Simulated scan of single mutants.
Amino acid sequence: MMSKRLKEKAGFGALAALTFLAIIPVVAINGYLVWKGWPALTWEFLTQPPRKFLTEGGIFPAIAGTLALTTGTVLVALPLGIGTAIYLVEYARENLFTRLVRIAIINLAGVPSVVYGLFGMGMFVLALGLGQSLAAGALTLGILTLPVIISTAEEALRAVPDDYRHASLALGATRWQTVRRVVLPTALPSILTGTILGIGRAAGETAPIMFTAAVIYTPGLPGSIYDQVMALPYHLYAISTEVPNVSQHMAFGAALVLLAMVGAMNLVAVAIRTRMRLKRMR
């Protein structure tokens, strides 16, 4: 029979092999994108609008549109998501209503993005009269991102020890002061994890913005939240499937820029989270 030590080594070896197998596709995809897309990354490609039916020029309007949509998504989803989580954890009683709300949040997290796009078109584009616009796209992506942020924020708030709350209340603080000055700052680094996931998903979605905000081509940057925008996911879809005679390097270059933008957003959020944790430990 195998000794306990040998079994432990075998288990660690199997886990290491599984980890390595999980990393291989990620490295392969990223390496392939860099190899195929790097030749397209010129200054003109990053700073100029597309020309000649998207077959030449750059992707700057799409980059700006993606950043605008992502910023709008955060402005919509973050306050609503954190506020909902605070209510469910700190104020709401455990009853049928709160159980139904949590079930609805879980179900919403599994809804396909195209369904969110159809809802956004019906609600924001048609019913509210926003038309295809930056505002309609940001609201749709905000709703799409909400379940992830709410679930993560709720778990982060529950992870804060009750001793923190009791100590604050014992010192004379109100419940809201306790939430605002004790519970929320303690949970905020973990809440940012959900925000990172939500931002990454929102920045890479195509179906919701196809129905609510994005166009294949627009000559300039949006002047208001009611203007249509170009966006990298939809631009990538368009030049890959709808526009003939487009260089492969341009398509892979756009994909590489989108990947870099999502990675940069994640790195910024991780840096903020790490700094906040270090500050709290001092």
Rank of each mutant, 00 (worst) to 15 (best):
Ala170Tyr: 10
Ala92Trp: 02
Leu126Pro: 11
Ala170His: 04
Leu80Asn: 12
Val125Ile: 15
Leu69Phe: 06
Tyr91Phe: 10
Ile106Asn: 15
Pro147Leu: 05
Leu108Ile: 05
Asp162Trp: 12
Arg158Gly: 02
Pro79Phe: 07
Leu141Val: 06
Leu75Gln: 01
Ala167Gln: 15
Ala167Ile: 15
Phe124Leu: 03
Pro112Cys: 08
Phe124Asp: 07
Val111His: 00
Ile150Arg: 00
Pro112Ser: 05
Ile103Phe: 13
Leu139Ser: 03
Gly131Ser: 02
Gly129Asp: 07
Asp162Val: 15
Pro112Gly: 04
Leu144Tyr: 14
Ile106Thr: 14
Leu126Gln: 15
Ile106Arg: 15
Met121Cys: 10
Ala173Cys: 09
His166Leu: 13
Arg93Met: 02
Ala77Ile: 02
Val148Cys: 07
Ile106Ser: 13
Asn95Arg: 03
Thr84Tyr: 11
Thr73Glu: 10
Gly110Trp: 10
Arg99Val: 06
Thr152Gly: 09
Glu94Leu: 07
Leu108Gln: 08
Leu141Ala: 11
Gly131Glu: 02
Thr145Asp: 02
Thr73Val: 03
Leu96Cys: 04
Leu126Tyr: 15
Gly172Lys: 09
Arg102Gly: 02
Ala104Cys: 11
Leu146Cys: 15
Leu96Val: 12
Val76Asp: 04
Val74Leu: 10
Ile105Thr: 07
Tyr164Asp: 06
Ala170Met: 11
Ile86Asp: 01
Gly110Met: 07
Ala153Val: 12
Leu78Gln: 04
Arg158Glu: 04
Leu141Gly: 10
Glu155Lys: 13
Ala156Pro: 04
Val114His: 10
Leu100Trp: 14
Leu146Trp: 15
Gly110Pro: 04
Leu169Ile: 14
Ala167Asn: 11
Leu108Glu: 02
Ile143Ser: 08
Ala104Ile: 09
Ile149Arg: 12
Arg102Glu: 00
Leu118Tyr: 14
Leu141Ile: 04
Leu100Gln: 14
Thr70Met: 05
Asn107Ser: 14
Ala173Asn: 11
Leu128Pro: 07
Leu78Ser: 00
Ala135Cys: 10
Ala136Pro: 13
Val148Lys: 01
